[in-house]
């Protein structure tokens, strides 16, 4: 199919090829954006490092053991994933609605699930770069010592935690489809309470068992706990559950959130179309 004389022909795709092309197409701006817009290096690394530094100095004021500094650096880096899921996954469809893109997504002959997957993969890639940069800068600035107990387990925990987290983000995105301007406030509300409950700056074991177990519904809670156990010498003593159990729970969370995202998205899309909320703009 050609779109006009003198223009490059666009091959029409269907089935799984269209699905894959949609994922690549939606991930593309997030991946390429990190190359074209270098200023993120300042804002997305500098800001988390400031927060990390503040919490590091709080621990130093309390004369805490040095491994807590490492806990803060790793936790501070992982905040980037939660913020990405909140602002660029969950509330993304709200932004798209505000800018008029959502109706185009629905009209186009592609799967909304593929769009969400593309957003997730692109966001995961870009955020991993940011988190890695924060860990490097934080570790160098505060001389954090690591002792990796198992590279394979660490990789598995990281991949599973991110898969479950972005699955959760995809699920929340479908819920946010129905929201208007309250989406911004609800995303804002879900920052500090999650930083608290997921133990971004302290071991989750510090909480009562049932609170920690409840907080484990957020994949980063167990992901962070397992990573700390695997990268710090004293991590295992401060761990909430053993690493194999945490990996098993993360696998369950991956399956549950991805299925829930698919089911909810289909339901919410139908509901949003029926209630005429896809193009509304309640400023």
């Amino acid at each position: 199919m050609t779109v006009g004389s003198g223009m490059t022909p666009i091959k029409k795709q269907t089935g799984w090829r269209l699905y894959a092309q949609t994922i690549i197409g939606r991930a593309y701006p997030r991946v390429i954006g990190t190359q074209r817009e270098k200023s993120w290096l300042f804002f997305d690394v500098f800001l988390p490092v400031l927060a990390v530094a503040a919490y590091v100095y709080v621990y130093r004021a309390m004369r805490a053991p040095e491994e807590y500094v490492g806990f803060v650096v790793v936790g501070g880096a992982m905040t980037a994933f939660w913020l990405n899921v909140l602002w660029s996954m969950s509330s993304q469809l709200y932004w798209e609605k505000e800018q008029g893109n959502l109706a185009l997504y629905i009209m186009a002959p592609n799967s909304m699930m593929a769009i969400l997957l593309g957003m997730a993969l692109g966001g995961m890639f870009a955020t991993t770069l940011r988190a890695f940069a924060v860990i490097v800068v934080g570790s160098l600035a505060f001389q954090v010592q690591y002792a990796i107990a198992g590279w394979l387990e660490l990789l598995a925990v990281f991949v599973l935690a991110l898969t479950a987290l972005y699955g959760m983000g995809m699920m929340l995105a479908s819920l946010f489809l129905l929201l208007g301007r309250e989406a911004w406030h609800l995303s804002n509300l879900a920052q500090e309470p999650i930083f608290l409950l997921s133990g971004f700056y302290f071991p989750i074991k510090s909480f009562n068992f049932w609170i920690a177990l409840g907080a484990s519904i957020i994949p980063l809670t167990l992901g962070l706990d397992a990573m700390r156990q695997l990268v710090f010498p004293s991590g295992a003593t401060l761990g909430f559950l053993s690493v194999p159990i945490e990996i098993a729970i993360l696998i369950v969370l991956c399956v549950v959130f991805l299925i829930a995202a698919r089911v909810l998205l289909a339901y919410m899309e139908r509901l949003a179309i029926r209630e005429g909320r896809l193009t509304e703009s309640r400023r």
Partner: peptide, 22 residues
């Protein structure tokens, strides 16, 4: 709820950090 939960959570992060260490 929004006005209460957000600031309290922010303060509780420091409270838990302090409680764990001291």
């Amino acid at each position: 709820v929004y006005s209460i939960v957000k600031p309290l959570a922010s303060a509780l992060i420091l409270v838990v950090m302090y409680g764990v260490i001291t």
